[in-house]
Amino acid sequence: MSTITKDLIVCGVKAENAEDAIKTIGAYLINGGYVKDTYLPAVLERETEYPTGLQLKTIGVAMPHTAGIHVNIPAVCVAKLSDPVEFRHMGDPDTKVQAQLIFMMAIKDPDAQLDTHQKVMRVFTNEEAVEELSAASDKDKLYEAAMKYMG
């Protein structure tokens, strides 16, 4: 099964801050039935305690997620914000990251979904992939790039 589905590709999300971004992007996962109503508050709480921002070479990204009990169907929502918002850096909450690409993960069983993690991770460490994803100007281009590198 592909990691990427087109209804979970979102381009040009307008968000005031990280919380706003998580809520807006999370709505796609909720509306698609991928996650339970408890998912959003759980992700927000987790992000406060264990932030998920990562500063890559050219841009900042974030991968908000939470425990599997809040998930119905495993999925990854790939979203590009129209303007970056401030996330805190993983492993070092005092460092801020201006994140523009958000990989919101609905992980049900981490061991069974290792493949998904690896695909997301491979994107982070692949400059070409990051460049194509961040250069995507509309949903179709973002979908194309996501399929190419994560599909």
Binding site: Y50, H65, G68, M121
Partner: peptide, 16 residues
Amino acid sequence: VCGSGTVSSAMVANKL
């Protein structure tokens, strides 16, 4: 070690 003890730590585990 990662926040949830699952997702990122699994990535790290594999890489290591």
